[in-house]
Design a protein around this nucleic acid. Structure first.
Lengths: 344, 344
DNA sequence: CGCACATCCTGGAACGTTCCAGGCATCCAC
DNA sequence: GTGGATGCCTGGAACGTTCCAGGATGTGCG
């Protein structure tokens, strides 16, 4: 009755953590019943449920996910591969957690870092017997992704992959860049440059969107594409290249890159948006910083996360699913770095 | 002999992944032997070892970590709690992966996001039966950390915690800020302000370091502390507050915050470092961006990661350990945002 | 030749769960 | 009263590993 004190686990190695049997013994019921109660399944009276719960609390019982999952044959685990250095990936992961919240599935994160490549990140998750893989803008070649998809459901986020076996959740990159250009045109700009993303995921589509939109607006002759990339560094370099012959507006591959552009411009005493308008892409949390106040094209990360998690679970459960590729519409977010063209 | 083709797992739900027994059957040996071979333990002849390996490869066998760990009683898992929105945390996690590489321990990441608080992040790791917890600049009160440390070894990074039960790996924040101030004084500055980190981890120590260093340099009368924080936003706000009465130099709580400061300054046409010197803290990858070129005080993340992982493992194995608190020395990194004082 | 001692291997019992088949009351309808 | 539900509970067999106690062989040495 008052033997509680001694049971608080304190010497880590020594006394092992309490198990179902311990709780069962203390509550005077069977393991199976405790199991029921812990999972909130029907089949126990309110009174016993309370007693069991109490015993569990007193012992500080925590179910062992390994045993649990081993037995049930399912891990209810979704593996997430992402680049820990990318703020936009972080934003997506944040939303993935939110989306997974009420689904009964947990997320297992595996980061790609400068010293830990994608195959390595994936391998860890395979050993954990994840039921599906969510990959944020993976770099692996299509063939590798396809091979992986033969083992378990693979959902790729923020990158297009033309393979029948892998699901894709992305935003309409071309449309988004179209929005950006249209916005600039409406503001009176015609000399609109594009700093691109090189071989990054989505870069090709955004480049195409830029070209199309320019053509659509009768500005095909003014197309100007400057090689960029996906980091601040890349943006800064591109902006420096632009300084000699400034356009009146520039649509940048993504927000990180745009940050680099902005920085070089302000240092060079080029007024934004008075002399030049800048628009980014992603609506990365960077863009939202009030001091940057970057106009951008938002990817609906929340919606994409929901779609991706939903799709991954459907596949894991073997439910019939619809279209292999889910495309979220992008949305223009006007902030302070774009303004009317004051032609020189 | 040629029954290989059919065994490539393809319909996810249908045929379960191969187990030890499958491999054993195919190689014509016992499960136990396969187990030995997979773990590269002695006790099998070179020839059988080869045969088993071959069978495993053909089946695409991957050990099931759940079962493995359940049985062995150990998870060889180190839980990592970190803020996914913080670039510096990402830098540390990157190093943690590197440090864990050859230890036989794996990292289990659990992110803190705006919608997922620390207790929740911790809980996930507890269910995974991690053998120790690495917490990057946790916000939890000391009491909560102490309670946690009663259950399993806890190593806190980048924050001081005065509790006998939790290990701490941090850099000497006060010394680091001392270095920063000394550097500025050497450059001829005397009107040196400090934009602080409020209640953030390490902020109190850095504030103290600033005060001490000012006193030490005979500048006690010039002490000027401006409330800041740990984000770009906070830095921008602090910088705006400073504009009316600019000091000749400012030592900022961290690099993220310094980024905000720099941005506001350049926009206000204040030349850095000609009119004002700015120094950050952390040597976050932000600071290294060439276009920012921020002078800063580097925390030796690689060393801290090694120490933290080492300490966590020692505790998990129950080896005797030395001092509870490990302090890494900070290092001044001079880049482009600090320069000689041109007093007005 | 017999005995100890490697070396290579096997069988079966754990680990902490979940799941299934069933047991024992109690209750209701006929 | 009897038969069948229904509600609450139990015991024991999985799950895929590792670990331990041993069983074969072969080898060296007195």
């Amino acid at each position: 009755m008052c033997d509680y004190a001694g049971r608080v686990p304190s010497f880590h190695g020594e006394d092992r953590r309490p198990t179902l049997s311990d709780v069962a013994a203390r509550a005077g019921v069977s393991k199976s019943l405790v199991s029921l109660v812990m999972r909130a399944e029907p089949g126990a009276s309110a009174e016993t449920r309370r007693r069991v719960q109490e015993a569990a609390d007193q012992l500080g019982y925590q179910p062992d996910s390994r045993a649990r999952l081993l037995r049930s044959g399912r891990t209810r685990l979704l593996g997430v591969v992402f680049g820990i250095q990318h703020t936009f990936h972080a934003d997506l992961v944040t939303e993935l957690y939110a989306a997974a919240r009420e689904t009964g599935f947990e997320l297992a994160l595996s980061a790609v870092t400068p010293g830990r490549d994608e195959p390595e990140a994936i391998n860890g998750l395979l050993q954990d017997r994840c039921e599906a893989l969510l990959m944020v803008a993976p770099r692996s070649p299509v063939a590798a992704l396809a091979r992986l998809a033969a083992r378990l459901p693979v959902v790729v986020l923020a990158r297009g992959v033309r393979d029948a076996a892998v699901d894709v959740v992305r935003n309409a990159d071309a449309d988004g860049m179209h929005l950006a250009v249209d916005h600039l045109v409406r503001l009176g700009h015609s000399r609109i440059a594009h700093i691109d993303g090189g071989r990054a995921a989505g870069a090709a589509d955004r480049r195409r969107g830029y070209r199309d939109a320019m053509g659509w607006n009768g500005l095909a002759a003014s197309v100007r594409i400057v090689p960029g990339g996906l980091t601040e560094e890349d943006g800064a370099a591109a902006a420096r290249a632009l300084l000699d012959d400034l356009p009146t507006a520039v649509a940048v591959f993504n927000d990180r890159c745009a940050t680099g552009v902005l920085d070089v411009l302000t240092r060079a005493r080029v007024e934004v948006p008075a002399e030049i308008s800048v628009i980014g892409y992603d609506d990365d949390r960077l863009a939202r910083l009030s001091h940057l106040d970057l106009t951008t094209v938002a990817q609906d990360t929340a919606a994409m996360a929901r779609l991706a998690v939903g799709r991954a679970i459907e596949r894991a459960e073997g439910s019939p699913v619809g279209r292999r590729e889910l495309v979220a519409p992008p949305r223009l977010v006007v902030r302070g770095t774009t303004g009317p063209c004051v032609s020189r």
